[in-house]
């Protein structure tokens, strides 16, 4: 019963590789570009390129592939369901019917649509997982803060937003562990979480969240007092110990990404989409 075991999204795997050493801003921009490309792709060859790219990044960054994939496990049912949805519901005028039963009709167009959307979700997940596995949360938030900085001029409280994120990140793990303890304490007093149907199981979760929320509020209250006594008065007048620096590797990585994007865009516009 370890709730945090199979969560890979948001986990940082410390390392010393080139990918780890890139400026977080570079990584955020590259990941955003990838996501943008993924949303435009409609053909298998282009997905092949993305697969190649991500595999290369995983290889360089030394992330164990099995670990990177195990985070996908909880999403698998959703992916499969989505695939079936597309298979039966999507159709186009010139589609070939693969088979048909009662009110369900599966066409090749539906299958391609299912494939493409599943692949899209799969790769979106892959890109963000790699980003968080190779970038510390603090790095990510620093990067975000720096990238969002221009928005301060239009009155967006970016520093406060980022501080909220920093704190949320620190407490997500604490709360997950706390949840684990509460579930155990209830099991110890006769709650059988592993028995019953979905509704019964869900109902059993209510008494779990009561102490969790109460404790979370208590923590928040104490944290506010602690921050206040460490002279925190909001983002105004605050300085940072660490300032981000872009180096040669970032330039090279940026160039590689530019070339890669150009190729993918070329593929997108030249190769006939599957649907």
């Amino acid at each position: 019963m370890e709730l945090t075991k199979n969560i890979t999204l948001g986990v940082y795997l410390p390392g010393e590789t080139v990918i780890h050493r890139l400026d977080p801003r570079t990584k955020i921009v590259i990941a955003s570009l990838l996501i943008f490309l993924l949303l435009m792709i409609k053909s298998y060859p282009a997905y092949g390129m993305i697969l190649l790219f991500l595999t290369a990044v995983i290889f360089i960054s030394g992330i164990p592939i099995r670990y990177a994939l195990c985070g996908l496990k909880p999403m698998l049912p959703v992916l499969i369901l989505m695939w079936f949805f597309q298979l039966f519901l999507y159709s186009s005028p010139d589609a070939h019917v693969i088979f048909s039963w009662w009110i369900f009709t599966a066409t090749d167009a539906g299958m391609h649509m299912g494939n493409l959307i599943s692949l899209r979700v799969f790769f979106l997940f892959g890109a963000t997982t790699i980003l968080t596995l190779t970038t510390s949360m603090v790095g990510l938030t620093d990067g975000m803060e720096s990238l969002l900085n221009p928005l301060r001029k239009i009155g967006l409280p970016t520093q406060e937003l980022v501080m909220t994120m920093v704190i949320a990140l620190r407490f997500v793990l604490i709360l997950a562990e706390e949840l684990d303890k509460i579930v155990k304490a209830q099991m110890a007093r006769g709650v059988a979480f592993d028995r019953g149907n979905f509704i019964q199981k869900t109902k059993k979760l209510f008494p779990v969240f009561l102490p969790l929320f109460i404790n979370a509020f208590k923590r928040a209250e104490e944290l506010i007092v602690a921050m206040e006594s460490r002279s925190y008065t909001g983002g105004k007048g605050r300085t940072k110990m660490k300032t981000l620096h872009m180096g040669r590797v970032d330039l090279i990585a940026g160039l590689i990404m530019l070339i890669f994007s150009a190729i993918v865009i070329l593929i997108i516009f030249t190769i006939q989409p599957q649907i």
Binding site: E178, K184, A185, Q186, A188, I214
Partner: peptide, 11 residues
């Protein structure tokens, strides 16, 4: 089983 922190076991 009585846990260390009573806040986790009073529901």
């Amino acid at each position: 089983y009585v846990f260390q922190n009573p806040d986790y076991q009073l529901f």
